[in-house]
Design a protein around this nucleic acid. Structure first.
Lengths: 145, 145
DNA sequence: ATTCTTGCAAAGCATTTGCACCCTG
DNA sequence: CAGGGTGCAAATGCTTTGCAAGAAT
């Protein structure tokens, strides 16, 4: 997932946010670290090139990005919150053995769920979004998850 | 969800756990507070009758109960972890406006999902469980969520 | 110039841990 | 009486906050 500096600037500008080196760094990290990084992973990544950006600033920036719909934040069974810059409707595969997470996207599944809940209304509840948490085991050849 | 003291004792005994007043209190709280309580809510409930049970003990007990499959632990987008003593396969409805959570159980949905993933294997992944996170708005008459 | 953003360090909150004492089986 | 369980308080880990100084528009 490559992203150009110009794209990042436009993303910030379109939300009416000031363009600062710190915010650019956070967005760069977010797009470079595809694996639903924690704040700590983002901070580590940033500090490789910019050791002077403060931890608190990264948290504040992430918060602002979430509030502006640039990224999303979610929790796993682990301690730290995860950030995700993929905004399309997708689900998550969770490793039962580690903290590894992958995306799962399937239009047919989304249609299936949409149909199901169209014919099976939940009493007194208005659905806004549906996400699957699929827990299991990654069978990669490297077994590195 | 009423539960008798005897049932609780048997539950502990069947897992080879020592029966202590503290553990009984935690289990009573868990069954009395149906709404996926946080540790804090459990502690508050217990302290109404047993102000002398330590916070750390409740956390340790909850941990042991989770490890022994008596209850489950999960996280929402909120801060604190939630505990759930309903063990059947069910999904969760999350309020977009508050911390309120309700269970959603539907055999047909479970079958539908089972069928889907039987014919749509995920490469290099072995599914162990599937849970829906359904986010939306509770439309109760009292609007109390 | 004005308003927003940053850095820093301290505080906050949920949870865990260490250890001496105590209780259950 | 032996092995676990408990209470307490301190420690941990993630995240938030307050505020003075700095930067973006």
């Amino acid at each position: 997932m490559e992203i150009h500096a110009e794209t990042i600037r436009e993303k910030l500008k379109s939300k009416g946010l000031k363009i600062t080196p710190q915010r650019i760094s956070v967005l760069e990290a977010l797009y470079a670290l595809q694996d639903h990084p924690t704040a700590e992973q983002i901070i580590d990544f940033i500090h490789q090139k910019n050791p002077n950006i403060a931890t608190g600033t990264v948290y504040k920036t992430l918060d602002i990005l979430v509030k502006n719909g640039v990224t999303t934040k979610f929790r796993t069974d682990g301690e730290a919150a995860r950030y995700d810059c993929i905004l399309s409707h997708h689900h998550h595969l969770f490793s039962a053995e580690s903290d590894h997470i992958e995306d799962y996207e399937n239009e047919e599944l989304n249609r299936l769920l949409g149909n199901f809940f169209e014919t099976h209304h939940i009493p007194n509840f208005e659905i806004q979004s549906i996400k699957l948490q699929i827990k299991g085991r990654f069978l990669s050849n490297t077994n590195s998850d």
